[in-house]
Amino acid sequence: MTDSIFILFVLCLNVIICEWLTKKPGFRQIGTALLVILVTAVEANLGVIPTIETPVYEGIFSYIAPFSLFLLLLSVNLKDLRRAGLPMLTMFLIGSTGTIIGVLVSVWVFSAPQTVGSLFYALAGMFTGTYIGGSINFHAVALHYSVSKAGNLFIAATAADNIMTALWMIVTLTLPVFLQRRFPRQRLIASEDQSAASAENLFSDSETMTPNDLAILLSLGFGAIFISKQLATWFPVFPFVLILTTIALGLAQFRVINTLRGSRLLGLFGIYIFLAVIGAYCDIGALIRDGQLAFVLFGMILLLVLIHALLVFGIGALFRQDWDILGIASQANIGGGTSALALARSLNRPDLQLPAVLVGTLGNAIGTYLGILVAELLR
C-alpha cells in the first residue's frame, strides 16, 4: 500500500502500539525507540507499507526529523550548568574526551573501513555523539550522513548501542558501591535545592499546551529549518544539521523559549515517527545474513566505553573524587541525562539528580558538533 495517508496512519499507530507495549513486562527495558523500529520493519517486510523511498518518507527525513531535533534541543539552557557543580562538570568533560579517544582506537583496532564498510566514519561520528550526549546526537549525525536510509546498518548500530547502554547502567549501579566499600571516599553531599523535582520536570513526557504554545513551536521550528537550509546553501562548508543545532541552542538560552510547553512532547513523537521510517527501510533477511555486523559494532562500542571508563575512574581515583559523581558523570555520557537521573535516584543521591540532568543537557549541546568533527577527521 503506497497511499500517503495510509502510511502515516500505520506509522502513528505503531507509536501507539509501542508506547502500550513498553508498559508491559518484558518490553519496558527495550523502550519505545527500538520497538517502533522493529515493529515497522516487520510490517514493511510483510508488504503492509513500502520498503522503498516514498514522498512521505522523504518528507519525514527532510522536515519532521530536523524539526524534532530542534525542539528537543530547546531544553538545553547552558546558564543552568553552574548548578551542576565543578566536580560533575569536570568528570563529564573528561568522560567526553575518553569517548573520543575510545572511538578513534576502536576504529583502528576493528579495521572499521573493511569490517563496517564505506560509512564507517559516519558510524564513528554517531557513536561519538551518542556517548557524549545521547540519542539526539546519534540521530542528528545519522541524518547528516544519510545513515538513516541505510536501514540495516542503522538498526545494527542501534541494537548494539541499546545493549551497551543497558549493560553500562548495571556497571554504574554496582561499581560506585563496590569502590566506596573498598576505597572509601568522602561523599560531597550538596543541598538538594529541590533538585529531584526539577530534574523530573525536565524529563516529563506529560505536558499541557495551548494552541498558542503549538503555534510558537511550529513557527520557530519551521523558521529555523528554512534559515538553516538557506545558510547551508550559501555556505556549504557548514552542514545543515550544525547550523540548525546552533540556532536551537541560541534560542534555548532565552528563558521564555527554553520553558515553552510541548517541545519535548512534540520532539519525542517526531523522533518516534522518524525511527519508524528507518524500520521501514530495513531488509530483515539481509540483516539476518549480515548478523556479524552487529557483533563488530558491539565490539567497537565495548572497547570505546572501556577506554572512556578507564579515563573517568582512573583520573577520578587519582584525585580522590566521590565515586557516585564518577558513576553518574559516566552514565550521563554513555546513557544520557535520563539514565543519569535514574542512576542518581538508584544510588540514593537526590542532591546529584539535577546535576546529572544538567551535564546530560551539556552533552546534547556539544555531542553533534564533536560527532561530525570526528566523522570528518576519519572521512
Rank of each mutant, 00 (worst) to 15 (best):
M91S: 04
L8T: 01
R83N: 06
F27Y: 11
E19K: 13
F9S: 08
L71T: 07
V10W: 12
I30D: 00
V109H: 08
K24C: 09
L93S: 03
L35A: 01
S118T: 09
F120A: 14
F6G: 09
L123C: 13
S111Q: 11
L73Q: 10
V116G: 04
S106D: 10
V116Q: 04
K23Y: 03
G26D: 14
A41G: 12
V107N: 00
L119K: 07
P66A: 07
L46N: 10
V116S: 10
N14D: 12
P87G: 04
G102E: 06
L81I: 04
R28T: 07
G85I: 01
C18H: 06
L104S: 04
K24H: 14
T32S: 00
W20Y: 09
S106I: 15
V116W: 02
F110A: 14
F9N: 05
T90R: 13
F9W: 05
T22V: 08
T22E: 06
S4M: 11
V103Y: 10
A44W: 03
G47Y: 10
S68C: 06
L104N: 10
F67T: 14
F67M: 15
V36F: 02
F110Q: 08
Q114H: 14
G31L: 00
A33M: 05
L93D: 00
T22Y: 15
I100D: 07
D80E: 03
L89E: 03
P25C: 06
P66W: 07
L11F: 05
I101Q: 08
T115Y: 07
T54P: 08
L81T: 01
S96L: 01
P87K: 13
F92Y: 13
K23W: 03
L11C: 10
G26W: 12
V109E: 08
G26S: 15
A84C: 00
L73V: 11
G31D: 00
Y57C: 11
F27A: 03
A84M: 00
